[in-house]
Design a binder for these strands. Sequence first.
DNA 1: TTCTAAAATTGAGTCAATTCTGTTTTTATG
DNA 2: CATAAAAACAGAATTGACTCAATTTTAGAA
Lengths: 204, 204
Amino acid sequence: MSGLRARQKADRHRRIIEAAAELFREAGYEGAKIEAIAAQAEVSVGTIYNYYENKGDILGAIVSLEVNEVLNAGRGVVANPPANVGDALDTLLGIYIEHSLHYLSKEMWRQAMAISTQLPDGPFGQAYTALDRSLTEQIRALIARLQALGLVKQDIDGQALGELIFNNMNMMFIEFVKRDEARIPELRTAIRRQNRILVAAIGV
Amino acid sequence: MSGLRARQKADRHRRIIEAAAELFREAGYEGAKIEAIAAQAEVSVGTIYNYYENKGDILGAIVSLEVNEVLNAGRGVVANPPANVGDALDTLLGIYIEHSLHYLSKEMWRQAMAISTQLPDGPFGQAYTALDRSLTEQIRALIARLQALGLVKQDIDGQALGELIFNNMNMMFIEFVKRDEARIPELRTAIRRQNRILVAAIGV
DNA sequence: TTCTAAAATTGAGTCAATTCTGTTTTTATG
DNA sequence: CATAAAAACAGAATTGACTCAATTTTAGAA
């Protein structure tokens, strides 16, 4: 019935992702040749292309796993935010940023971001856009929660604010991954400073 | 003395850029083969790589020309801004956005942005980062001007505010070039809506 | 169990960016 | 104005992502 074929398929997917993740980590994205990934996954080159449209999509699958974890971690903050607008934002964005380099190197992020703008209609491009939207939505949800708690003015345009905060953080993160010597604490400090303007504007 | 070699060099640079610009326009970035650009520029493939590190750098040179024009156009607004904070911002950002598709197609922008994050240390990557900084700086200058005119609170953190506004606009522009069907008026409206929050916060 | 159509796999072949090496042109010096 | 060193050029060779036609494997009907 459901069996063999589906199981083999899932298994090959997993093997390809694991092989790619290992080689990307060891050799970098460019350094990891498709032939090497295929060999490591004990699969032929053609098969990889049966599962993923192109090399970027393999990286994309890995990045998606990571971002989904971040989204999950963020739920806790939205449900139970610190009782201070600035801290609440800092905590949520802090989770995004601190998680970001767990599995993915800066180089992998650079490649992933590049691919998502280069091929916005490819599988990964679309997935990445959706993930960005989910993150924006989560920030918007946090703002709504803070409004419910009476910490943020009721008449604030939550949608626009969420976009503003996400877009700024995302752009800062892009600059961060572009510079290998950039460090997370400085990134967070810079974002806090930018958000201070907003926090002052929206607090009750 | 200075002569022949330098002249030939400048001439070849120009021919390569012109050939590439024409082919990128006609065939798109991917569609424009290096061999074709070389043929059109009456130069060999090897010579192109003597002038530019890779295909992306050729596009980069073209993008830089465009962004520099935009920066020039922006100077006028900073020197003489509309007497209203929201309008002043909208006018400056409007210039950036309206100019953007003059010479460059969305596809060219996508490629250029992708390359600049993929190879941040390449010639174009560095140039692009510098251009972003110049644009941020110009927004900061506008804010300073508005402060001098008494339209913006004195105690506003102009640096952070400039970054916030630029980063948000830039991210919106990235999303804009990723969707072929996206239109400029809607982009400007969305950015105005986001900036409204800031305008409310910083006006005297 | 046996057979057949559909699905999946394979790896040699294609294509285009980039590199490399030998040649030509320019410069500057005696 | 001859010439050697330096700079630039040409295009053939390399490399690696991606394609495709042939082959193998699976599902399920008889």
